[in-house]
Amino acid sequence: MKKLLGYLLTPIFYFTFGLFLGIFHPIQWICYKIFGYSAHKWSVDVLNFFLTYSQLTLLNGVSFRNDFKLPKDRPIIFVANHQSMYDIPSLIWFLRKHHPKFISKIELTKGIPSISFNLKYGGGANINRKDSKQAIGEIIKLGRRMNEKNWSTVIFAEGTRAKDGQLKPFQVGGIATLLKNVPNALIVPVAIENSWKVVKYGSYPLGTLLPLKWTVLAPIEREDKAPEDLVLQAENAIKQYIGQA
């Protein structure tokens, strides 16, 4: 039944999602070129509100929970599991008060309406995975911006999407590089649930009638812990929350 519903509703979702990308591309350009960072961020936030709630066209529920008062005057590294491309708009929208940035493949900075423009000018790190020197340099620059502006960064520590929802081992590299440059950063795990089911059958049909959930877990202070220990603590917290411990 759900799969049949997916065949019927997926075209509506893609039309809605693509329409918002197209509408907000010139809006982003105007905001950034004429009014600067704050206006551009506002346009990106509003875009990702609409992208997030485009899931309603698939009859999917969207839920965000944060029981913690996170600081706005301190850099934060949000460490999340990664299940599908639909994780990202919701993280941008729900964490908007913390100016979340991403570490993205440099290839994504071209050819995608709205998304490529934001990646290019939004302040994140766009890395060439074939050039480790360039990648590390971009992450270091991102760390400096986090320090200067109290921005946050979202890192999908698995390094790739878990297409079956099963957590993959978290990688330390990117987080360790950031921590060298942002030593006072707060580590905050975020558990993502059920978004892998949206693409369970691939790009068509998409999953329907799903409870999509984003949950902020207890923040982790660095203290004197090594990056490896911090990442393992975040990984275990997410595992336990989503029932994979």
Rank of each mutant, 00 (worst) to 15 (best):
T109A: 10
L8Y: 07
F102M: 11
N184H: 12
F35H: 06
I192C: 06
G18T: 02
Q240V: 09
P219E: 08
V154G: 12
E228T: 14
F17L: 04
I23D: 05
G61M: 00
F78T: 03
Q244I: 09
A237C: 05
R129D: 09
F24M: 07
I103S: 05
W93N: 06
I106V: 15
F156N: 02
D73K: 10
L58E: 01
I238A: 11
F117I: 04
L179M: 08
K133Q: 14
T153F: 07
S43N: 03
L8A: 13
N126H: 10
T109K: 13
A125C: 14
F49S: 01
A218D: 11
A234K: 12
N150P: 12
R144H: 15
G6Q: 06
P113E: 11
S132M: 14
L47P: 03
Y53C: 00
N194W: 02
K105F: 07
T208I: 02
K133Y: 10
H99N: 15
V182G: 08
G123H: 14
K180D: 09
L209Q: 11
T208L: 04
E107Q: 15
I77D: 06
R74E: 04
D73W: 02
S152M: 09
D67H: 09
S195D: 00
Q240T: 14
W196T: 00
Q233M: 13
K168G: 05
P100R: 13
F13I: 03
K213S: 13
P75S: 03
G159F: 12
I88F: 05
L51T: 01
G61T: 03
I77N: 07
